[in-house]
Design a protein around this nucleic acid. Sequence first.
DNA 1: ACAAATTTTTAGATTTGCCTAAATTATAAT
DNA 2: ATTATAATTTAGGCAAATCTAAAAATTTGT
Lengths: 229, 229
Amino acid sequence: MYFCVNKYLMTRSEENYIKTIFHLGRKGTQEVATNAIAELMETKPSSVTDMIKRLSEKDLVNYKRYQGVSLTDLGNKTALGIIRKHRLWEVFLVEKLDFSWDEVHEVAEQLEHIKSDKLIDSLDKLLAYPKFDPHGDPIPDKNGGFKERDRELLSEVPINTGGVCVGVKDSSATFLKFLDKNGIALGNQIKVMEIEEFDGSLNIEIDGRKMQISHVIASNLYIKASDEI
Amino acid sequence: MYFCVNKYLMTRSEENYIKTIFHLGRKGTQEVATNAIAELMETKPSSVTDMIKRLSEKDLVNYKRYQGVSLTDLGNKTALGIIRKHRLWEVFLVEKLDFSWDEVHEVAEQLEHIKSDKLIDSLDKLLAYPKFDPHGDPIPDKNGGFKERDRELLSEVPINTGGVCVGVKDSSATFLKFLDKNGIALGNQIKVMEIEEFDGSLNIEIDGRKMQISHVIASNLYIKASDEI
DNA sequence: ACAAATTTTTAGATTTGCCTAAATTATAAT
DNA sequence: ATTATAATTTAGGCAAATCTAAAAATTTGT
């Protein structure tokens, strides 16, 4: 394949597969399982195999039968491009169109497939080159570069320590709405006061206010010691 | 068909057909010809027939074999919804992202298919409820209501009259770039000074500056006597 | 009015992306 | 190590949206 910049000849479906493989590849070992992709995409393993073959043809993934898949450099770059678009659109929706953070995902899933370099770069500029999306996830730059922020799950820090809430692990609408209802948002100062032996629930102080949260909640909130946001 | 709000189950292709039929239906007689659709969409008549049948099933068009098509009320409403989105996105691109008016069409063609009522209504609000797009075409409101602005082609007005440039008939990139190059934009005050007998070219005064334009140019510029913009 | 030209439709094939059911390969258990 | 189980792939099919080639209907010209 000669000078194939790719990118503009990818279908929506191909892009979604690449994105999914990227996300699954992050956490866990190296190769991504067909079943895992199928489950996350709510499709059948056989469909995944079909698509993987096509992506392999296009040099976006490394594939050996029965061995799982991984992204090639091209595939990785492609994934980062899509994620950049998704997260920038999320920022746009929240900052400019007053969406709440539990409403952005669905629409961003559509907007991330719009093809126009100028569009996304101008959007980036309009938003003043944001580094993180509304859920605290980092936004890759033009060249795909981004660094995962140094952060910890609230469930992992010892008693009497704390920091600023900088992100969520689970960004489902259900969880985000729960956080809204309980007045928990990015930027809040959180300190762990006590951890319940029995069920692992935490007594925390959040922006001065005391409350109790379950272990599950704590294990989906990221905090950072510094006051960077 | 019961309570079929439609709209959210339309494919991109179906939407494009509906839009094309709408545009062709405006100018000209009643029924739109298969060939005309095929030509405008750069596809084959047989493909058009196929799609028309599908649209007819969904009650978006009235179709009788060999008799051409027309939009149903539902089809019309659908078309207006798509056009509303297209034109609002165009305004956004120009106003917020510094696109020039010859760059917006291609991207808006993609953005117009994004499905989210909240998105488009918020965008409308962000842009302060614009009534016209960057080419002077009217933007339908939420309910599909819009009125064609009262305007005339520059080529049709008599000598010594004029008005504000409020729109273009041809909004191809080629024409728009030509206008840019010659300093012609919406909002300019234009007055016809003289019409050349020989080739129909016009001597005009535009914002105080004198210039000559061909008949073809004049027949693609809309002006309005009042100073409404 | 009737043949010729044009327009439109049908028939059959292709590609993408998905499915089910069956076969194959890998992994786990005893 | 061999069997049972789980994961993956193949085979064959389907729907959307397109195409080409051929047939049918309509319109036009004289």
